[in-house]
Each structure stands twice: as structure tokens, then as C-alpha cells.
Simulated scan of single mutants.
Amino acid sequence: MLEALLEFFKSTGLYGLTPGAITMLLVGCVLLYLAIVKRFEPLLLVPIAFGVILTNLPLAGLMAEPVLEVKDNLIHTVQPGGLLYYLFQGDHLGIFPPLIFMGVGAMTDFGPLIANPKSLLLGAAAQFGIFITFIGAISSGLFTAQEAASIGIIGGADGPTAIFLSSKLSPHLLGPIAIAAYSYMALVPIIQPPIMRLLTSREERSIKMTQLRTVTTREKIIFPIIVTVIVSLMVPPAATLIGMLMLGNLFRECGVVGRLEDTAKNALINIITIFLGITVGATATAEQFLKIETLAILCLGVVAFGIGTASGVLLAKLMNRVFRMNINPLIGSAGVSAVPMAARVSQVVGQKEDPGNFLLMHAMGPNVAGVIGSAVSAGVLLSIFGG
């Protein structure tokens, strides 16, 4: 009887608990706390956190690979893999991030960018964080060029792009990179304001910008087509993300496919967000996550984010000084592609200086430009290091 009880105990997950597994279960609970109690990007962090918990449950096998054998020149499945293993193929094969981009495109109004093309420069400036952090990761000696490229893209504050690039260049780091990217996106209201205030004077933060012109429907329809063609010709590896982003936006603006637009920005993006989040979390096993490299990724990620924020602010100040423009530098911080949270932060910080100042629509220009910029940056890195 005692032996039977002992054998039963050995078959339970309790017997397989290790310090590493316990630590990761606690990490998952902390992420759930941040998502549910603190409301930090709950739509993303709840599935990611639960994926972390599921993958670190001993003997559950939710990320177990299938056991295959070759018999009579045919491959047979001896034992099927875990549920999350099969769902994870959407990350591994680069399917889920572009579909997320389609939904983002269907929800995005590129009107502020079209009305003020100069904001494209501010979105581009925010990408400096990606390349400076790439250099820093290489210099640390801890990472290869492919790994450093995947880490640097965190600076774009674009979770799907970070997942897309890391799944191509360094899939073994997908978990830490994705969790860092989404965590820093959730912390935009905490990370950005101190940097914005440090780099600007009260007078600069109070600058009032003129109202944007009205953008025609024709312009909004032509814009996604032109961007897709130009970007894809210049940076072919970026065509997947840019193409899906602009297809979703075309659904929104053309006015004749309301059902497709509704599906892309509601049902489809919600379903893919669940699958993407839970499988990204499921890659964060104790063996992969509890390393010195993970701590370095988290540190480099926040540096990338900070540099991206500062670069946009500083370029706006430079444009004011050199070209005698009247740009509120706060909108430069929205060049990171955390849409629309970064634009809202610009609005909040600006209104603290002058309650009558309305920067939201002006900040949306650099914000949506940052989405394009991060996808192009990922394409550049993929074309250089993906061969």
C-alpha cells in the first residue's frame, strides 16, 4: 500500500517541482497581478502570464513535442505533442504577428501622419533605440549578432514585431524578449514621462500646435497601397508585416468591406492575441528564462525603450531650432509604436503644463509612424542577419 502511494506521488506534478519551476510559477503570478490589479496591458499580460504558469507545471506536457517514428518510409506519430506546442507553431512559423498587424491596421487612422508628414521623421528617430541597443548587446559579449538584433527590436515597443523577428533570428530567446517587450509597453506611462520632462523645458512642453488639415478619403485609400509598394521594394523582408498592416488599414478606409474590417479589428485580433499571448508565455520555461542572459535582455530592453523615447524628443527640439518649426517636443516620444498609449502619454504630460493644450492627434502621427518604422527596422535586421 505504501509503495502504491509512493508511486502515485511520483506520478504527480508535486514530485517534479523544482526551485526553477516554483520561481517561474511566481513570475507568472506577478505578471497576473500587474495585469489584473495594476491594469498593465491586461489583454496581453493575462494570456502571457497564464502561459508561463502552464508551461512550468511539471509533467503537464503542454509544450511537449510529438514523438515520431519512421516506418515503411512514412512518418508516424507515436505520441502527440502538447496543445500549446501545436499552437506555438503560429509563432514559430511567423503567422500570428502579421495577423495581429492586420487587426492593428484595421483599427489605425493614418490621417494624422498623412496630414503632417514631418511626423514620419519623429517616428523614424525613435528607432535609434533599436540600433544603439543592438550595438550594446553585441558589445556585452553575451549575444550573437542575431540575438542582439532580436533584443534591439524591443526598443520599438512593438510586441508582434519583436516576436516576429526573434522567431526568425533567435527562437530560443522568444520568451524573454516577448515578455520584456510587452512589459515595457505596459509601463509606457511610467517610463516615458520622466525622460520627457528631463529633456524639455516647461516652455517647450507648453507649445501649442496648429490644427491638422482634413485628410480626404482618397488620400487615406492611396496611402496604404503606396506604403506597401515602396517599403516592400526597398526592404523586402518587411513586406509581411507592412503588407498585413496596410491591408487591414485598407479594409478600414475603402468603405466597401465593413464585415472584413469588423472581423480584422475585433474577432480575429482577439483570437490571435489569445493564441499569441499564451504560447509566448509558454516558451518561458525555467531552463530558458532563469539565466544571466535574461537579466541582460530585461536591462537592454529598458535602455532601448528609453533611447527611443529620448531620440524622438530630441529630434523634435532640433527641428524647432534648425528649421524654425513649432513642434511640441512631447509628441516625439510617441514615435515608439505603443499605439495609442504613447500618444496618450504625450497628451497627459502636455496638459499638466497647460490644460488647454491638445496634443493627442498630433502625437498620433509619430505614433503610427513608429509602427511602420519598427516593421521596417525589423525587415532591415532580418535582411542583414537572417541569411
Rank of each mutant, 00 (worst) to 15 (best):
F251H: 00
E353G: 05
T55S: 13
T210K: 15
G175D: 11
G90R: 06
V257Q: 08
K71H: 15
L32K: 02
A180E: 14
L315N: 03
S11N: 14
N320A: 00
G277T: 02
G356H: 11
M107Y: 13
T18S: 04
R344Q: 14
A239V: 06
D72T: 08
A282W: 03
R202I: 12
G335S: 07
I177Y: 12
A64K: 11
A162R: 03
G335N: 10
A238C: 04
H362I: 01
L295S: 13
I274R: 09
L295H: 07
T273M: 13
I297C: 05
N326V: 12
I95M: 08
S166W: 03
F143C: 07
I191S: 07
C29I: 15
G301R: 00
V46T: 11
Y184G: 00
R213F: 10
L43M: 14
S167N: 06
E261I: 02
P189Q: 02
P193W: 05
V30F: 09
D72Y: 10
V37W: 09
A343R: 04
L54E: 03
P340L: 06
M107Q: 14
F128L: 15
I163A: 13
G13K: 04
L122W: 03
P47I: 02
A282H: 00
G312L: 07
K265A: 08
I151M: 10
S140D: 02
A162Q: 04
V52Q: 03
F134M: 09
K265C: 10
